[in-house]
Simulated scan of single mutants.
Amino acid sequence: MRKSLILAIPEHVGFPSAFKKNFESEGFNVSLITVPASEHFKYKNLFQRLQNLFRKTFLGDKDFKRKLFVKNNKERLTEQLKSIEHTDYALFIRPDLFPLEIVQLVKEKCGMLVGYQWDGLDRYPAIYQYLHLMDRFFVFDATDLKSNTTLPTTNFYFDFLSTSIPSGNDTLYYIGSYLDGRIDIVKDIDNKLKDLNVDRNIKIATNNERIIQLVQGKGLTPISTLVPYEENLTDVINAHILLDIQNPIHNGLSFRIFEGIGYDKKVITTNPHVIKYDFYRPENILIWNEQSLAELKQFIDIPYQVLPEDIKQKYSFSNWAAYMLDLPQHMPINLPN
């Protein structure tokens, strides 16, 4: 008998579709409820904008904008849930983006309520209000394993895709939003790869005209529209090397690392914590520290070391889902100290 699941997830770069497809490929009946990605929040009027500025500046209320975002979605989500009967499971990605009342309502409709905060807890402290509702709650940064209320996990790679993954041509692929600290790192790597005659497919996401000009001035390609995740995976699969720039606000590993594992890609990353994980191989992952041209060439030229099948399976979506929902025969996913 097929298991049933409520999947509650923000509409960030098309992730809901990929999650739903992979759960369905694992035999789940999925009821999907979504909220807009938080970066797409817009104030309803000037008063709301000024009210947020006042509360943040003079009252120290950094949560007011999130509360507006959550309130705007409450009525629509309540209506969606009316048509959903009892399910075996419910999984919330970033529960704090959903009204607390909605999470409570979903808890009444499911046998097990699971949450995953794919961002640091202290970055969005409102999440602490939700923890008591969760039967299982997961974090991907070891520093957030503060009590028995949080469990370890990592991100994963989607394995609903065809298993006949092409080896990729000699191309490096990177897509990421603009951050001051990232652009010079990306440009340094781009310059060195150019000298090594390695093709680059590098996209910097921004719709700010000043930043667009800055990115172009560095010889890089700005894009003003978000690339849906499954479209992004086409570029991942067609590449030979993936570039991952760590977000300094947390130590958790990005999806790019796990795409490297799942699709047999080399990865250049600025996240030094990757060395602590069981899948780390220096032939496959280069921790970027302004290496010389010769050192970068050595990494590119050395053959990719195929990982043991059990390690690849451990970091797949199918195992991740089984572990999150505590299904039989899953492999636990731990975080290094």
Score class of each variant (00 low, 15 high):
Leu196Gly: 11
Leu196Tyr: 06
Val198Lys: 15
Val198Ile: 08
Asp199Lys: 13
Arg200Val: 06
Ile202Cys: 07
Thr206Ala: 11
Asn207Arg: 15
Asn207Asp: 14
Asn208Glu: 13
Glu209Gly: 10
Glu209Arg: 15
Arg210Phe: 01
Val215Asn: 10
Val215Ile: 15
Gly217Arg: 15
Gly219Ser: 05
Pro222Arg: 11
Ile223Arg: 13
Ser224Glu: 04
Ser224Ile: 04
Thr225Met: 15
Thr225Asp: 06
Thr225Val: 01
Leu226Asn: 04
Leu226Arg: 14
Val227Thr: 13
Pro228Gly: 05
Tyr229Ile: 09
Glu231His: 07
Asn232Pro: 00
Leu233Thr: 01
Asp235Trp: 02
Val236Ala: 10
Asn238Arg: 04
Asn238Met: 05
His240Tyr: 06
Ile241Arg: 07
Leu242Gln: 06
Leu243Pro: 01
Leu243Gly: 05
Asn247Val: 01
Pro248Asp: 01
His250Val: 01
Asn251Thr: 03
Asn251Ala: 10
Gly252His: 05
Gly252Glu: 08
Leu253Trp: 02
Leu253Thr: 03
Leu253Gly: 03
Ser254Thr: 08
Ser254Asn: 12
Ser254Met: 07
Phe255Arg: 04
Arg256Gly: 01
Phe258Pro: 04
Phe258Tyr: 09
Glu259Asp: 13
Ile261Glu: 03
Ile261Lys: 09
Gly262Val: 02
Gly262Lys: 13
Gly262Cys: 12
Gly262Glu: 08
Asp264Phe: 07
Lys265Arg: 13
Lys265Asn: 06
Lys265Ile: 03
Val267Phe: 07
Val267Ala: 09
Ile268Leu: 11
Thr269Gly: 10
Thr270Val: 03
Thr270Met: 07
Asn271Pro: 01
Asn271Ser: 04
Asn271Glu: 02
Pro272Ala: 13
Pro272Glu: 02
His273Ala: 07
Val274Gly: 09
Lys276Leu: 15
Lys276Pro: 05
Lys276Arg: 14
Phe279Gly: 09
Tyr280Trp: 13
Tyr280Pro: 12
Tyr280Gly: 15
Pro282Lys: 06
Pro282Val: 04
Ile285Phe: 09
Leu286Arg: 09
Ile287Asn: 13
Trp288Met: 10
Asn289Leu: 09
Glu290Leu: 14
Gln291Val: 02
Ser292Arg: 14
Leu293His: 09
Glu295Tyr: 11
Glu295Pro: 06
Glu295Cys: 10
Leu296Ser: 12
